[in-house]
Design a binder for these strands. Structure first.
Length: 559
RNA sequence: GCGCCCAUAGCUCAAUUGGAUAGAGCAACGGCCUUCUAAGCCGUAGGUUGUUGGUUCGAGUCCAACUGGGCGUACCA
């Protein structure tokens, strides 16, 4: 039995007692939660408060009557230790040590799978993230999006979603034309020409590198090549390679790179226009085509086709989302930076008015990363080449710390990233606290082998050779209890799209382990007790390692 | 001006989504290594949860107004 299991049992017990006391069931399912203060027990319910106004009795009285009925009916003493009423009306449950210790068995049985669940029920889910156009290297700002998106995808996979990771990009727009032109200018410059480099072109050093590569391979043969030919193409290729390499360093890869351009080539853009026309949601004005957003609850009408005949970004975004629906995704997760905060409502509005179920779309907006260097804010701009690349950051603090740093914070918060501090504190980064616990356990297990307490003596081929009930110490129970929470934490992280919950949880695990380690020796002459403690260590190591896998950080055997 | 997001210890963040005494990590101070990793453990200090009202048994959490910051408010993406 696990924590969700026990909640169901308690629910049944409480409901029955409630009914036998008052003649009917509570209006809503009773809530069970862990009290912050552990002296109040392991789980607590607030049914009495919820029923107070209906029953016209004090919550305290109601709680007392419920508990009285529960005692009369009896309950499983092997699991439930005590049931108490506390003012002003909580009912607190305490469980037995053996119940908590049983988690060790569960963890060891499930091993690398412990923590997986099937609440996602195989739902076909798409997570779209990064989606940066290939105009320059990924910056620290993209890093937050990339790491968060990848981890959300992991969490969803662990809860049974069938996940597709997707990167949406455009290699046809104005940005890309400017990119090609930028490379061509640098190319001509390398050929000895004196050029004027416009301010609105891409200033970065990488543009020169690309031009240099073209020069090395083709010499001056490209002097008459248009910017949007070989120059743009080469830039796109190199930059994309670079982006993929950077993402790879963080353990991130995509299943699909979706090119916006294909939406034009396959006529999807035209289909959307036709559908909006048919729905009477468009009109022409000032030479442009407008989406009548105000007719369906929007704040103001928006241009979808410019007077130049070019669509605005909204149109392909709408077409892309229709494609997502057509491809059969039951859940579409879009991860954007806060600069897109104004764009998605139009897109969703259009989808909804065309009859699509926008409930399936979940847009997650993360706040920006503010970079501090030398005590000053660094304003990032790809075009002005004023940025700190994600690659540089990884060089400085390592991939694990980068991932961890971005995941620690809720995406709703503005993230201040002090580069100097990050470099300095790289050795004191909180990620090490967790990894150290894992390495420490690995070390203990090695030591145990040396001392003749082999892992095979504890467990082999699924056969357990230890008696978990030998564990009596407070820290042992605490650790085991904490380990058992892992599956519901992963579930909560998936439901709320908040992977940072897993970090907070793993910190609890590490803390519980370190405390246990500090007070109790594992490898001791009493081989029976040693075996039980090794089993506990194994379980802790497994939970840490599984958590690390979700977060995408490594689980070192040594540090 | 309008819209969305944010404000919690000196710093960076939590708080089981409305629950009981608001918690961690850095930074500061004090203690703990002849025994499995001291990247650790234990303790001390640090708060009118931006301000003011409201909703109810109960508010960091919900509502309103205000203050300060971010991002939008393009026929840029």
């Amino acid at each position: 039995m696990d924590n969700t299991g026990i909640k169901h049992i308690l629910e049944k017990i409480v409901n029955e007692a409630f009914k036998s006391a008052f003649g009917f069931l509570p209006a809503s399912e009773p809530n069970f939660e862990k009290p912050k203060n552990e002296s109040y027990g392991d789980l607590s319910t607030d049914v009495a408060f919820k029923a107070a106004s209906v029953l016209r009795k004090s919550p305290l009285r109601i709680a007392q009557e419920i508990v009285e009925k529960v005692s009369q009916a009896g309950y499983d003493n092997a699991v439930i230790d005590t049931i108490e009423v506390a003012a002003p009306g909580f009912i607190n449950f305490k469980f037995t040590d053996n119940y908590f210790l049983s988690f060790v068995d569960r963890v060891i049985d499930a091993g690398a799978e412990f923590g997986r669940s099937n609440v996602g029920a195989g739902k076909k889910t798409q997570v779209e993230f990064v989606s940066a156009n290939p105009t320059g290297p990924l910056t620290v700002g993209h890093g937050r999006n990339a790491v968060f998106g990848d981890t959300v995808a992991n969490v969803l996979q662990w809860t049974g979603h069938d996940v597709t990771r997707e990167y949406y990009f455009n290699n046809a727009g104005r940005q890309m034309r400017v990119l090609g032109a930028s490379v061509k200018l640098r190319y001509r410059e390398l050929l000895g020409e004196k050029i004027e480099f416009p301010e609105d072109h891409y200033q970065g050093e990488y543009i020169r590198d690309i031009a240099k590569h073209l020069l090395d391979e083709r010499g001056s043969a490209l002097a008459d090549e248009p910017p949007e030919g070989a120059f743009k193409q080469r830039a796109e290729e190199e930059i994309f390679e670079d982006i993929k390499k950077t993402l790879g360093r963080l353990g991130i890869s995509f299943d699909v790179f979706y090119n916006e351009n294909s939406l034009y080539e396959t006529g999807k853009i035209k289909e959307v226009i036709a559908a909006l026309d048919a729905a009477g949601l468009t009109y022409e004005s000032e030479g442009a085509k407008w989406f009548r957003a105000t007719a369906v609850g929007g704040a103001q009408d928006k241009v979808i086709v410019k007077s130049s005949g070019e669509p605005t970004y909204r149109l392909p975004d709408i077409a892309y989302h229709i494609e997502k629906f057509r491809r059969g995704f039951g859940l579409v997760v879009d991860i954007f930076g806060s600069d897109h905060i104004a764009t998605y409502p139009d897109v969703l509005l259009a989808l909804k008015s065309l009859g699509y179920d926008t409930e399936k779309v979940r847009v997650l907006i993360h706040q920006f990363v503010t970079i501090f260097q030398n005590g000053e804010v660094v304003k990032m701009s790809t075009r002005k080449a004023n940025f700190i690349t994600l690659d540089e950051l990884i060089d400085w603090v390592g991939a694990d710390a980068v991932r961890f740093f971005f995941l620690m914070r809720n995406i709703g918060t503005h993230l201040n990233f002090d580069i100097d501090l990050a470099k300095k504190q790289s050795e004191e980064n909180p990620v090490f606290y967790l990894q150290y616990a894992h390495a420490r356990i690995a070390s203990i297990l090695r030591f145990a082998e040396d001392e003749g307490v082999r892992l095979d003596d504890v467990i082999s081929g699924g056969v357990r050779k230890f008696d978990i009930a030998l564990l009596k110490e407070k820290e042992e129970i605490e650790l085991s209890k904490t380990l058992g929470n892992f599956p519901e934490v992963v579930e909560a992280a998936a439901v709320t799209f908040e992977p940072n919950r897993i970090i907070s949880y793993l910190q609890e695990v590490a803390e519980a382990f370190h405390r246990f380690y500090h007070l109790h020796r594992v490898v001791i002459p009493d081989h029976n007790l040693a075996a039980s403690r090794i089993a506990l260590c194994l379980a802790a190591k497994t939970v840490l390692a599984n958590g690390f896998r979700i977060l995408g950080i490594s689980a070192p055997e040594k540090m």
